[in-house]
């Protein structure tokens, strides 16, 4: 898995999350933004530490809202994207190469990729047949609450067979609300 964003020639950044083609376009792959949030780091360290002393409750993992009684709130960030193969050949080695948190008027920062799965939680094996469309979910550590820039977006780079790249930029993402009503 790549850890840095390749140099790209941006042809346009879509507020609605449309695809951005790079210098090595993978023309038969379409990438669409589906959903995403920046998670919540409030209480993460406390919950992880408390998990050891939680009696009947196993240590909690981020994002596991059913794991014991969570304290305030601890959840990884997650972004879901749709991959569509509009070509005639199958992809065999698709992967998510980079996640970049972008701030309006601020610095970009690379985020660690914690995992990539299908949206139903099953393993993503990197293949995509012609005409097939699947959704994948990418997890990353929640940025520190106090450091989440206003108007933050996420740029996701999908790496195709042979090293081609396709990118999508999300609209503004927010910290995951605890109550969400």
């Amino acid at each position: 898995m790549l850890t840095a964003v390749s140099a790209i020639a941006l042809l346009g950044i879509g507020c609605g999350g449309r695809s951005i083609e790079g210098e090595t376009p993978a023309k038969s792959l379409e990438v669409s933004y589906v959903s995403g949030h920046l998670g919540s780091d409030q209480g993460c360290s406390a919950s992880r530490a408390a998990g050891d002393a939680a009696g009947a409750f196993a240590p909690c993992e981020p994002s596991d809202t059913n794991c014991g009684p969570p304290p305030s709130y601890c959840e990884d960030g997650a972004v879901t994207i749709q991959l569509s193969n509009v070509g005639d050949a199958a992809f065999k080695q698709l992967d998510v190469g980079a996640l970049v948190l972008r701030a309006v008027g601020g610095d970009d920062s690379n985020l660690e990729i914690l995992g990539v799965t299908r949206d139903d939680g099953s393993k993503f094996d990197g293949t995509l047949e012609p005409t097939q469309a699947i959704k994948i979910r990418v997890k990353f550590p929640a940025p520190a609450y106090s450091k989440v820039p206003k108007g933050a977006t996420l740029q996701i780079t999908v790496v195709t067979d042979g090293g081609g790249e396709k990118q999508v930029e999300t609209p503004e993402l927010h910290v995951m609300p605890m109550w969400a009503t």
């Binding site: 919950s47 408390a50 002393a53 939680a54 409750f57 909690c60 009684p69 304290p71 109550w179 969400a180």
Partner: peptide, 26 residues
């Protein structure tokens, strides 16, 4: 109570709400 059962101090604001009230604005 759920927080405290796991050994984590609860945000004191949670106990201040009282029955029938909740802060949903995050």
């Amino acid at each position: 109570l759920a927080s405290e059962a796991s050994g984590v101090s609860a945000d004191p604001r949670l106990r201040s709400w009282g029955a029938g009230r909740v802060d949903v604005t995050d």
